[in-house]
Every structure is written in C-alpha cells, then in structure tokens.
C-alpha cells in the first residue's frame, strides 16, 4: 500500500493535498469544538472537581461518604428514576398512539393537530403545573365533578403525591415524545407497510414486524429525551409532589441551600450523571440503532 502510494505519478502531491485538507477541516471545526468544550465539558469537569472539595478547597471524599451514610439520597435517586421511568413509559404508550394517529392523517390535518400537541410549549411549565393543581387538588375540578356525579364520595388524593407528579410530568413531556416519533413514522415509506401486507402480514403483524421496528429510532430518541428531561424535573415535583416527592433537582437545590460549599450538591450531581450515562449506554446497546440507521458494517 505504502509503496504504491509513494510511487505513482503525483502521489506525493496528492497525499499532501489530502493532509492539508484534513488540517483545514480541523481548523474550520475548531471554533465549534472549543464552544462545545466550553459549554459542555468544562462545566461537567468543574462539577466533578467541586464534588471532591471541602469548603476551603481541600480534597475530600466526605461529599460522597454523605451520599452513602444518609438514606435520603438513595431514596431520592430511587424516586427520581422511578418517576422518570414511569413517565417515560406512559409517554411512550400515549405518545405512540398519538403520533400513530397523526401519521395516518393527511399532512395538512396532522399539521394543525400537531400545533395542538405543541401548544403547551408556549406556556411556561410553572403555569401548566399550577393548572394541574387547580384540576387535581382536593376541591379541584375533577374531584368536584366526580363527587357531584356520585362516582366517589370523599375527595380522591389526586395531587401532592407520586400520581399527581407523574400526571403533570407526562403532560409536559408528551410533546418531546410525540415529535421524534411522528417524524420517524412519517419517514416510513408506505411501500414497507404495503410490502408486508402483500407478503401475508395482517394489520397486527405489519405493525409488530415492520412499523414498530421502523419507528424505533423515533421511539428511542423520544424515550431518551423524555427520560433525561424527567431526571432534571424541578418545578413539577415541587408543586405537585407536595414536598413528599423529592426528585434529584429538588434534593440538589436543598443541598445548595444547606451547606457552605458546592461539594455536597456537586457530588450528588456527579452520581446522577454517571447513573444516567450508564443507563443510556446500556439502552443504546439494546436498541440496535446501527441496524436501523444502516451502514451495513
């Protein structure tokens, strides 16, 4: 190989061109790389550093020790993942049905309905969360109607608990699920569905063997976004969880307030980050995305 490259006519010059082109490309992408480094890598590195420091800046493992000693951290983490998984699962079920419906409709109609799905994006999370409070609380609309119609006698505990928090979060997260799902469903050529039917697959088999696998990129993207955003929820659990639902961000905010240094909160953040990355890494292995995005390697 090497011998060949060096011998042919203009081989040296062409090789040099190729190298300078690579350098140029690197040079052009340098600002972007720096920006990413600055915006993403640096803060995480800083977080990491802080988590090993005492108030005075000396090295310590106390921040991590505290996470082990104090059971509330484990419970907060468990609760955070439990809620995030529940919300993601519910968003998958609801979002898939919704996106499927939209994908079957003519594009114009679907576009209008999609606006409805996206509408909540234009109101703040706080407003939407309080709206749920108005609906779900003890004297809220749902309880009033339910009692009035005699479905139940005593007000149901719909809010200030896990259920209320999940409802509020599902509402907020649904668009993040529907959008990528809808896009990946729209990208499914009608011929695939027809092809499967032609080969003998009934509607359920078409869905299971063809439609679902082909919409998996959207499912995975939507699921990942939803899950990650859920992990960082602050407002919704604070308002709808009634203080009983403490998610990671609420715990971190509490630590920032309570301790003299950033260390405890940073350590908690680092642990959350590591667990999240591990989950995502594992999930992406299972998702077999390489198959879907092609590139037969």
């Amino acid at each position: 190989m090497k011998a060949l490259a060096a011998e042919g006519p203009n081989a040296t010059e062409l090789g040099r061109d190729a190298r300078s082109e690579r350098w140029m490309l690197f040079g052009l992408s340098l600002p972007a790389l720096l920006l990413v480094g600055l915006v993403v890598v640096l803060p995480i590195a800083w977080l990491f550093l802080l988590s090993f420091q005492t108030e005075g800046g000396a090295f310590t493992l106390a921040n991590y020790q505290r996470l082990i000693d104090q059971p509330s951290y484990r419970r907060i983490l468990a609760m955070t993942f439990e809620i995030s998984l529940t919300v993601t699962a519910m968003c998958i079920v609801l979002g898939y049905a919704l996106a499927y419906l939209l994908a079957q409709l003519p594009r114009r109609v679907a576009g209008v309905l999609m606006l409805g799905v996206l509408m909540p994006f234009w109101t703040s999370i706080l407003v939407r969360t309080y709206a749920w409070l108005v609906l779900l609380q003890r004297d809220g609309l749902i309880n009033v109607i339910g009692e009035h119609l005699g479905f139940w006698q005593k007000p149901l505990a719909l809010v200030y608990n896990m259920e209320g928090t999940v409802v509020g979060l599902v509402h907020i997260m649904l668009p993040f699920m529907v959008l990528p799902l809808y896009n990946s469903m729209r990208a499914i050529d009608r011929d695939y569905v027809r092809g499967a039917a032609n080969l003998g697959a009934g509607p359920i088999q078409v869905f299971w063997h063809v439609y679902l696998p082909l919409s998996r990129p959207g499912l995975f993207a939507g699921g990942t976004i939803t899950f990650i955003l859920c992990l960082g929820s602050y407002v919704t659990p604070a308002v709808l969880g009634g203080g009983k639902i403490v998610m990671a961000a609420n715990g971190i905010a509490g630590d920032v307030e309570l301790y003299f240094s950033w260390g405890p909160a940073s350590a908690f953040g680092v642990v959350l980050l590591v667990i999240t990355l591990t989950i995502l890494f594992t999930a992406s292995r299972f998702a077999r995305l390489d198959r879907i995005f092609g590139g037969g390697a």
């Binding site: 050529d189 011929d191 039917a197 032609n198 080969l199 003998g200 009934g202 088999q205 082909l214 198959r291």
Partner: peptide, 20 residues
C-alpha cells in the same frame, strides 16, 4: 379480500425491502 389474504407476490418499484 384484504391484501394479506390474496397470496400474490409483488415487486414494488421502490423494492420495499425492510431496512431493519
């Protein structure tokens, strides 16, 4: 009869080979 019950083979213009 529904398409999947007709038992005809079809080659689509796009081939419709399942990418997954």
């Amino acid at each position: 009869l529904a398409p999947h019950k007709r038992g005809v083979g079809m080659v689509f213009q796009s081939y419709a080979l399942f990418p997954h």
